[in-house]
Design a protein around this nucleic acid. Sequence first.
RNA 1: GCCGCCGUAGCUCAGAGGUAGAGCACACCCUUGGUAAGGGUGGGGUCGCGUGUUCAAGUCACGCCGGCGGCACCA
Length: 653
Amino acid sequence: MVVVSLPDGSERKFNDKISGYDLAKDIGPGLAKSAIAMSVDGIQKDLVDMIETDSSVSIITIESEEGLEIMRHTIAAQVLALAIKRLYPNSKLAIGPTIENGFYYDVLTDPIISLEDLTKIEKEMNKIIQKKSKIEKSLHTKSEAKSLFFEKSENYKVQIIEDSGQEKDFQIYKNQDEQFVDLCRGPHLPSLSHVGSFKLTKVAGAYWKGNSDNEMFTRVYGTAWRNKKELEEHLKQLEEAEKRDHRKLGKQMDLFHLQEEAQGSVFWHPRGYLIWLQLENYIRRKLSKSGYEEVKTPQLISSRFWEKSGHWSKFRENMFVVPDVVPNIEEGKPIISSEGKMLAIKPMNCPAHVQIYNSEIRSYKDLPIRLAEFGCCHRNEPHGALHGLMRVRQMTQDDAHIFCREDQVTDETIAFCDLLMSVYKDLGFIQVEVKLATRPELRAGDDTVWDRAENALEDAVKATNLDYEIISGEGAFYGPKLEFHLKDAIGRKWQCGTIQLDFVLPERLNASYIGADGNKHKPVMLHRAILGSLERFIGILIESYAGKLPLWLAPVQVVVATITSSTDEYAKEVYSLLEASKVRVNLDLRNEKINYKIRDHSNQKIPIIAVVGEKESDNKKVALRRLGGKNQEIVSIEDFVKNIIHEIRPPDC
RNA sequence: GCCGCCGUAGCUCAGAGGUAGAGCACACCCUUGGUAAGGGUGGGGUCGCGUGUUCAAGUCACGCCGGCGGCACCA
């Protein structure tokens, strides 16, 4: 007897083991028709699989998120892969998993698939789907599975089988109407009749097993949905998201630009730099209230120093190195004539902060010491990594280093997380992903130190009640770290905030304090940043607000615009009043229609347009129009000034 | 760095071997108009850079540089 309990709490009893398909039929013919897989005690299975012992089972249909994901998986493994095999008979398959909103498949083809080929592949995929073939599953031993794919010259599949710890029950899925098979952990749709709407979206290179020493496959990306409507909604959403791209808005709003001669370094225009200054001053106030002291340290430091800190051996390929010699200005001669001493532009602020710490003898009573710097750092990032403001070569971090005793680590970490979350909240970010990155394979310090460090960090993050995910092996070589990730407009995640525990650098650079026992001790260093880099964070801010920044951050807060030139004098008066009240205000006296001015300033995302015409001028009023709003608000100039000085206040003031 | 695509006026883009184009922006003129583009005239280009093929190259080929989407690397 097998007892199956269903999600609604009911139970069904069967005399013998039963397949998922028969269970669905037993529940109802409608369900049997729409069923695509099942979940047995939380594990997804195919409908042909048998339920042999008492278990709780739910039937999966395409309506659920689980079902949708199974469909995406089947499209990748049974449709896309087959289409590619048909069009490129000598191609080799690697892996084809699902991702958010879709799937991809990594393949090796000759010729290489390019963007234009996608239509052709889609056509082939539709042909395959139209046959509504059944998908059959069979189980195989390791050697069977290996020889099967060996015969088909699918050497990457063979390698996958070989590298898996598994010995038996390799699942192979076959299209009933084709010779095509694929290895898969499943489950899959029972037949291609369940496939909804899909679109291939992009091609990209991707390394085998994610290792850049390995060969590169072509990764074909696609998105798939239950029906055409859902697909179109998704595509529309993507299009909308692209309009929020900070590079596009940066141009449109005249915030910054990048150019070839300084790739990876930003030219901040007046308006962009105003955002920067607001943000920097806000953080400065927050840090000052939280017991930090601000410092400034050198850009150019001798290689001798970087040797001591360990950067010269561990980080040099990311550093800009400058010879400390007088350049030759004679025509036709080499610019650098001799191998002089080397300087490097700082890629990080930490070693310099240790120098300030070391400038006097510290007592345990002085700790913690929190040194903050809006440190401008240069890193020689790979060309392919550069990305607008999000990944640059010159960046300014809201960096700080906390020197403390080991018993202070947890408290300091909790205090930092609280500070960070209060900043993120002020800036409108509620969705923050927290990750705890633990010891990497290559690391300094012994395991007992790592145990202490990881526990301290984890205790602290637990105490903050934040949800977090552990990413093992992703820590820095000197210590574990907490990472705080934010999303851009199209869902890419970027690390912004971080806090890292470091026992190594104080050791290397001889930092110490005198303890209560009169002996020297090593302080612990906490590397931490809230925004991460001003550049990246401003990029994220622009995208998350779609350019419509909150008033306190908006570079121009109000534009006073006239309807005709007859009110120019009054407009100037309004402008001066606002300016005197420290409102960032512009005056638009151009000989243009008010419609034109509204459109122009709205496109530039100016939060408030104060229109002044005859009526306003006569009554000493302004007609306010807020960005995105349709109606106007007529207020007296006194009330406007009185209210706006409150409205433009930063959240911490 | 690797794979694919792209590079034409300040911006958005058309032109695909035969005399460089449009809209917006800019300048000047007309227009003084009440909440998302009023009209006219004009200036503006080594078609990313280089080398080839050709009578002739934005257009074809090769190389380089840069951008975009991923991968790898990372704040």
